[in-house]
Design a protein around this nucleic acid. Sequence first.
DNA 1: GCGACAG
DNA 2: ATCTTGTCGC
Length: 228
Amino acid sequence: MDTPTDEAAARAIQDRLRTRVVLDETGPPPGTGLVTGVDVAYDDERNIVAAAAVVLDAATLAVVEEATAVGQVAFPYVPGLLAFREIPTVLAALEQLTSGPGLVVCDGYGQAHPRRFGLASHLGVLTGLPVIGVAKNPFTFTYAQPGTRRGDSSPLLADGGDVVGRALRTQESVKPVYVSVGHRVSLDNACAHTLHLASAYRLPETTRRADALCRRALREATLAVPGS
DNA sequence: GCGACAG
DNA sequence: ATCTTGTCGC
C-alpha cells in the first residue's frame, strides 16, 4: 500500500479506491471453509507495529495457520484514516499465509466510515478478498439499544440516516459489537459470521486470536531489535 | 474555533 | 491503541 504524505492525500486515495468496493455479493456462508482474523499492536516508544493473521477452520474454529509481520509505523492515528496506519503491516502478514484466507475479519469498520471506506473496505479492495469489520466502539454513529438477547441487533446510522452497519449483541446482556460490511459480503451475512465466531465471548474468535498473537509478536520484536 | 472520534 | 493489581466468578 502506498503511504500518503499527508491527510489530504490520504482522503484522496480513499475517494479513489472507494469506487472499487463491491457491495452486491453475499459472500461465503458462515461455518464453512476458512475465516481469518487480522489485528495489530503498537509500541509507540520504538514506533513499531506488529500485525497478525490467524486462519481458523470456520466449522470448528480450530487454528489452521498463523502469520505475523513487524514494521515501522508509517502514519499517525487520525480518525477516519486508520487504514493507512494498519494495512501495510497487515498485508505483509497476510502475504505470508500459505492457505487462502477465506473471509477476513478485522477490527474496525468497513462502510461505517465518514467516506464509506474504512479499514475493512480498504483491505478488501487491496486484496480482492471478502472482508467484514467488527468494531468494539460505535465511533460517531448512532443506534437504538438492541435487545438483550444474543443475536439481537439494531441499525447503525450515520448522519443523514444512512444505515452503515449494525449494532449486534453477541452475548446476552453484554455490550454489542459494531458490524459493518467491508467488501464482497452482505450485512446480513457479516452479522451471521460474527455471531458464529462469537459463540463464547463478546468478540469474534478470529479477533481474539489475532489480538493475542500480534501482542506476542510485538513483545518478541521489541526484545529482538536492540542488538542489531 | 473547539471537541469528539475505529485502533 | 496503551498505561495497569487485585479480584470476583465459573
